[in-house]
């Protein structure tokens, strides 16, 4: 596949080097730039005058035409939409972390009759795709008067199979003696969960929280179907609506895409170590 530099016999080398360092770096940088190119493209477009945009081949340098941002910002109730997203995502995280810690503790630490059966139920939940749930949950929400509310965006995602598994796994990995300290009653065990357990599984909680938060922030079809008024709709649905209404205003659209995506990117860059750790630990469990 590749010509090795120098003449040293391969078995002499101790370090594992899959490719020549320079070639490898050049290829790696090219790959990285390819993945970043769409970001550059949307920011450039968002800062261009209309006359710069409709040109071929396109100009790839920004023109600092910030009026697009003002126009896009004025075209929809963005602060409300952002607020809705933060509220829905935040409440979903709180609920999902809570249910995950409680159930994860029960499955990971306690031994009780019916554990396998209940666990099988949780497993079965994974088999149901979200798309399948759209219709019946819509009818249920309609019956329960939950359509077009925050509730229908929060409650269904307030329990996470992934969260229960991960927390359970962390608890199962703790030394048995920790929770064997004394014969405790139910309340005592709850206190123990709160004071000893929760701090020990904090990494898992963070991973679950990030996962659920991003999942909620990025979800589209669920809120799009379940809600109809901007008073409760999240920002991504607002963005799709904006796209439907202003589909020809590419500079304004690009500005809206940029300012709605930046919060997620900032969150990711600030916490990227945890994101990557989360994914790594997923792979680690595969061994």
């Amino acid at each position: 596949m590749h010509v090795r530099p120098g003449g040293a016999p391969s078995h002499v080398r101790r370090r594992r080097r899959p490719a020549g360092p320079v070639v490898r770096r050049v290829v790696a940088v090219a790959v990285g730039l390819a993945f970043l190119a769409p970001f550059w493209w949307v920011v450039t477009t968002s800062l261009a005058r209309t006359s710069d945009v409709y040109r071929f081949p396109p100009s790839l340098l920004p023109h600092w035409h910030v009026a697009n941002y003002a126009r896009a910002w004025a075209a929809a109730p963005w602060p409300r939409l952002f607020g809705n997203t933060v509220l829905v995502a935040g409440a979903t995280v709180v609920l999902a972390v809570l249910t995950s810690v409680l159930a994860g503790f029960a499955f990971g630490v306690l031994r009780f009759r019916g554990r396998t059966a209940l666990f099988t139920v949780v497993l079965a939940v994974m088999m149901v795709p979200q798309t399948v749930l759209l219709i019946p949950d819509y009818v249920i929400a309609q019956t329960a008067d939950l359509l077009d509310t925050y509730w229908i965006q929060i409650l269904p995602w307030g329990a996470s199979v992934f969260g229960i598994f991960l927390v359970r796994q962390f608890f199962a990995g703790l030394p048995t003696e920790l929770f064997d300290a004394a014969e405790l009653d139910g309340a005592g065990r709850l206190r123990m969960l709160w004071s000893i357990g929760v701090p020990l599984v904090r990494p898992a909680i963070l991973i679950v929280a990030l996962n659920v938060f991003l999942g909620s922030w990025n979800s589209f079809v669920w809120p799009f179907v379940m809600t109809s008024s901007p008073a409760v709709q999240p920002v991504e649905v607002g963005l799709a609506t904006f796209y439907g209404a202003q589909g020809t205003d590419w500079t304004g659209l690009s500005a809206a895409v940029t300012f709605t995506t930046v919060p997620v990117l900032v969150l990711f860059l600030a916490l990227q170590r945890h994101f990557l750790t989360g994914a790594y630990s997923t792979a680690g469990g595969l061994k």
Partner: peptide, 12 residues
């Protein structure tokens, strides 16, 4: 807190 969040839904 979650209940309060839901309560806001009525505001619209």
């Amino acid at each position: 807190g979650v209940l309060a969040a839901g309560g806001l839904a009525g505001c619209g």
